[in-house]
Nucleic acid binder design. Structure first.
Length: 406
RNA sequence: GGAGACGUAGUUCAGUCGGUUAGAACGCCGGCCUGUCACGCCGGAGGUCGCGAGUUCGAGUCUCGUCGUCUCCGCCA
C-alpha cells in the first residue's frame, strides 16, 4: 500500500464501504468521548471522519494529538448508520475506522484557530501565513485566482490571442503611477524600474505584427495600499489587438468577463452586453466614471429652474455658470429629521458646503428651502425629477465639476 | 501627504461616574464521558491593560507625548 494515502479526504463515498484505505492529512477537529474519538481529517480535497475505538493500541496517543497535527491513518471504510449520517459533509455517509495510526508532524498550540473563520490581526496572520492559508476562506481565494487565470488563458488562446512574457526589469517609462526602483549593480547610481504595465514591450510586439496579445501581468506600483489593493497580490489582464474598432475590443472583453463570472461565481449577470455610458454622461449623472448602476439614482440638472430663485446660494451659482443638481431618493420622505441631518453631515464630511433637501409628504413640498421657492419653480422641479409623493430630493450647488463630485 | 478609529489573556472582545481581587467566549493544561460532527460536564493555568510621563488619596478608565495597527481621503489604469 502507498506509504501516505490511497484516497484523499474528500473522495470516499458509500460505495467504498468495506474497502481498506489509507488517508493523510491535518487534524481539523477532534471530539473525544472518552470511549471513542472522532477526528475530522482534512486535506486539500475535503474532510473525512476517522473513528478511533478504545481497544486500538494507539488510543492514548490519539487522545493527546492536537489540532493541525499531520497524521496518517489506515482503516476500513464503514457506512454510517442512518441516524449518524452527516448530510452536511460530502463524505458524510461513511467514516473510516482506524486500524493503524502514525503521527507525522506535531503541531504546537495555535496562534489563531484554523478551523473557523475568526477575525484576527493581519500581522499575526502574516507571521503564520502557512496557517492562514490552511483556512477555508483563504484556501478558496487562492483556488479562485488559479481558476480565473487558467480560464483567462484558455479563453483568450482559443480566441486567437498569444501570451507573451516581457522583461520585469526595465528602464522607467513614466506614466501616472510611481515606479518601484531597483538599484543596478553593474551601473552604480542607476536604477531599474519594475514596469507598471509592460507598455514598451507589448507595443514592440504589436508593431512587429503579432496580431493579438495578452498577458496576466503583476501590477508593480509604488503607491499606498488599500483594503482591496495590496502590492504583490494585484494582477491585471493586459490585452492588445490589431486592426480593430473600439466596439471590437468591448465585445471581446464582454465575452471574457461574462464567461469568468458565469463559470466561477454564483453572481447573477444582468446584461451580457454591458450598458455603455459616455464619460461626460457618467460624470453628469453619477459624478463618477465608475457608477454603481444597481441603484438607478441619477443626478438631474436643475440649474435653469433656479436661475431666478430667491434662494441665493442656488440662483447665484446658476447665473455664474455653476450647476444645481438634484438627486431623487425614492420613498425617503418619511424618514425622520435626523436622517436628513445625517445626510447633510455626511455630505459636509465629504467636503460639500451643504446639502439642501425637500420631502414630498402629505401632498406638500416640505424642507428648509421650500419657502424660498415659487409655485412654478416647484412644478418645474417635479416635472424634471419625476418625483412623486413619498420621495425626497437632495440638492448640490456650486461650480459644475465640484457639484458633480458630491 | 491629510483625517479618523483602535491598542486589555494565545485569539475575539467586555470592563459603568476614576475606587477594593480586571471578566466572558474560544483555545491551552488536568479529570470524567462509547456516536459525536462547533460533542458535553467538572476543575485549573494564563494579564507589564502597547510604551513613557502627567493629574489624583487612587488610573485599564482622564490629559499629553510616543510607538504600532487598521480604515477613509489623496494617490493608483
Amino acid at each position: 500500500m502507498h506509504p501516505y494515502r490511497t484516497h484523499t479526504c474528500g473522495a470516499l463515498r458509500k460505495e467504498d464501504a468495506g474497502t481498506l484505505v489509507k488517508l493523510s492529512g491535518w487534524v481539523h477537529r477532534k471530539r473525544d468521548h472518552g470511549g471513542v474519538i472522532f477526528i475530522d481529517l482534512r486535506d486539500h480535497y475535503g474532510l473525512t471522519q476517522v473513528v478511533v475505538n478504545p481497544d486500538a493500541p494507539f488510543f492514548t496517543e490519539v487522545e493527546k494529538v492536537r489540532n493541525e497535527s499531520v497524521i496518517t491513518v489506515e482503516g476500513e471504510v464503514v457506512a454510517r448508520t442512518e441516524d449518524t449520517v452527516n448530510p452536511n459533509m460530502a463524505t458524510g455517509e461513511i467514516e473510516m475506522v482506524a486500524s493503524s495510526y502514525l503521527l507525522e508532524s506535531v503541531c504546537d498550540t495555535l496562534p489563531f484557530p484554523v478551523n473557523q473563520e475568526l477575525e484576527c490581526p493581519e500581522e499575526t496572520r502574516l507571521a503564520h501565513r502557512f496557517l492562514d492559508l490552511r483556512r477555508e476562506r483563504m484556501h478558496n481565494n487562492i483556488l479562485l485566482r488559479s481558476r480565473a487565470t487558467a480560464l483567462v488563458r484558455q479563453h483568450l488562446v482559443a480566441r486567437g490571442f498569444v501570451e507573451y512574457h516581457t522583461p520585469i526589469l526595465t528602464s522607467s517609462s513614466p506614466e501616472g503611477a510611481r515606479d518601484y526602483l531597483v538599484p543596478s549593480r553593474l551601473y552604480p547610481g542607476q536604477f531599474y524600474a519594475l514596469p507598471q504595465a509592460p507598455q514598451q514591450f507589448k507595443q514592440l510586439l504589436m508593431v512587429s505584427g503579432f496580431d493579438k496579445y495578452f498577458q496576466i501581468a503583476p501590477c508593480f506600483r509604488d503607491e499606498d495600499s488599500r483594503a482591496d489593493r495590496s502590492p504583490g497580490e494585484f494582477y491585471q489582464i493586459d490585452m492588445e489587438m490589431s486592426f480593430i474598432t473600439q466596439d471590437d475590443l468591448f465585445g471581446e472583453l464582454e465575452m471574457l468577463m461574462v464567461r469568468l463570472f458565469k463559470e466561477l461565481s454564483s453572481k447573477r449577470i444582468m446584461a451580457e452586453v454591458f450598458p455603455r455610458i459616455a464619460f461626460r454622461d457618467a460624470m453628469e449623472w453619477y459624478g463618477t466614471d465608475k457608477p454603481d448602476i444597481r441603484f438607478d439614482m441619477k443626478m438631474v440638472d436643475c440649474t435653469d429652474i433656479f436661475t431666478d430663485c430667491e434662494l441665493k446660494v442656488f440662483s447665484s451659482q446658476a447665473r455664474s455658470g455653476g450647476a444645481v443638481k438634484a438627486l431623487t431618493a425614492k420613498g425617503a420622505a418619511t424618514q425622520p429629521r435626523k436622517f436628513f441631518d445625517d445626510m447633510e453631515k455626511y455630505a459636509k464630511s465629504e467636503g460639500a458646503k451643504g446639502l439642501a433637501w425637500l420631502a414630498l409628504r402629505d401632498g406638500e413640498i416640505k424642507g428648509p428651502i421650500a419657502k424660498f421657492m415659487s409655485e412654478s419653480e416647484k412644478q418645474a422641479l417635479m416635472g424634471r425629477t419625476a418625483a412623486v409623493e413619498g420621495d425626497a430630493l437632495f440638492f448640490g450647488a456650486g461650480p459644475r465639476q465640484e457639484t458633480n463630485d458630491y
